[in-house]
Simulated scan of single mutants.
Amino acid sequence: MLDPNNSETTQMVSEINALLADHFALYVKTKNFHWHVKGPRFRDLHVLFDEQAIEIRDQIDDIGERARKIGGDTITSLGMITQHTQVKDEDNTDLTAEEMVVKLRDDNRRMVERLKSMKSTAEAAGDNATDGLIDDWTDMAEERVWFLNSVLG
């Protein structure tokens, strides 16, 4: 186990918690769009948004457990999610399908950027396991960006 009192480990836990907050917020936003999408591409986007939401949801536990494995605590509340996420709320249920796709694509792009920026922290902490997981999570987020970008044409 990494030394939880080491400043690099503390920074890694902080970044993992921000990533965890992003996943919670992006999951809710993606499900929101899944429920509210309308228009000629309804079926395709309804299914795509649900598939992406499930993938994001399924990463949440692994991310939270990673923080615990390296000796840290995880976010504990909706307030902490709101405090740590870079994903903006979207309460407008009248967005066009294209607007939804753009918003999700952009949120996933920011997640890719966050993940890539975490690599140096994992290396500094000597956290090879998190470093490897970051690669997997980056690949999944890049695939979501690719799919959403492809929908836009």
Rank of each mutant, 00 (worst) to 15 (best):
L2V: 13
E8G: 11
T9H: 07
Q11G: 12
S14L: 05
H23Y: 06
V28R: 00
K29L: 04
K29C: 01
K31V: 00
K31P: 01
F33D: 04
F33S: 02
V37S: 11
K38S: 05
P40I: 00
F42N: 04
R43I: 00
D44H: 02
V47Y: 13
L48N: 11
E51Q: 03
E55R: 07
E55H: 01
Q59D: 08
I60Y: 13
D61T: 09
I63D: 09
G64L: 03
A67N: 12
I70T: 10
G71M: 01
D73H: 03
D73C: 08
T74H: 13
T74N: 06
T76C: 05
S77M: 01
I81M: 05
H84K: 10
Q86F: 00
Q86T: 06
V87E: 02
V87R: 06
D91H: 06
N92A: 14
D94F: 01
D94T: 10
T96W: 12
T96R: 08
E99C: 13
E99L: 07
M100F: 06
M100G: 13
V101Y: 15
K103S: 14
K103Q: 14
M111W: 00
V112D: 14
V112S: 08
K116S: 15
K116H: 14
S117D: 14
S120P: 10
T121V: 11
A122M: 08
D127I: 10
D127C: 09
N128G: 15
A129K: 14
D131P: 09
L133M: 14
I134M: 11
D139N: 14
A141D: 05
E142N: 06
R144T: 01
R144I: 00
W146T: 08
W146F: 10
L148I: 04
L148R: 07
N149W: 03
S150H: 09
V151C: 15
L152C: 11
G153E: 07
